[in-house]
Design a protein around this nucleic acid. Structure first.
Lengths: 98, 98
DNA sequence: TGAAAACTTTCCATATCGGAAAGTGATCGT
DNA sequence: ACGATCACTTTCCGATATGGAAAGTTTTCA
């Protein structure tokens, strides 16, 4: 059996966030928030969900004097995302013209 | 902006079902139910959700004497799935090694 | 007529999602 | 030093969604 969908990653906002994080080394909270277009509370909760799953690492560091929150995908997070995307691809595989 | 994720399609069970339906002309309820491994009530509700969205067509017809329910993706359903998968691919596009 | 098959609906418990509002900690201006 | 501000975090709360069990429906078969 191939990998199954990971519910922690599958939620639309988290999926988008994970894909964003996978593309870079680190991004800041605000940038992700703008990309997802959600409230701070919502992003904060999604980050927490991913952090508790061990998928993202959170680091607080200053930038321009102000303190910012930096996010990055952990190694397990990258693995989980890879598995999730593999499962998605497996499903798509049988779909014509897709 | 490219197509966004379609919440009607995104739910895991419905996504899997849509991909199954996209690969064939018609499948019966029981076969889908086994593939998704959910109860009859649950599948019935998902089918209803997709039907109300205009994505799947339901036809009752006999087979082996017993009446069975046949499911198929409608044209709008195929379009919606295509758009959804395109959105997924767009997200995956930036992910390395995926 | 009664039983069984193949769903459909209803009932219900749990979970998730999202925003607003309140709370926290660090930093800045005076 | 002190209040204001920034950048989140938590809490509160309402709206949905999801899933299974159980009951209901329709059709078919003996």
């Amino acid at each position: 059996m191939s990998a199954a969908l990971d519910p922690v990653i599958h939620a639309p906002n988290r999926l988008q966030m994970c894909c964003m994080l996978a593309a870079v080394d680190t991004i800041d909270f605000a940038t992700v928030r703008e990309a997802l277009d959600v409230s701070e509370s919502v992003l904060s909760k999604h980050v927490k969900t991913l952090e508790e799953a061990g998928y993202v690492k959170v680091k607080k560091a200053a930038s321009d004097g102000r303190q910012r929150t930096w996010l990055s995908l952990s190694k397990p997070g990258r693995e989980a995302l890879k598995g999730h995307l593999a499962a998605l691809k497996a499903m798509m595989a049988g779909v014509p013209e897709a």
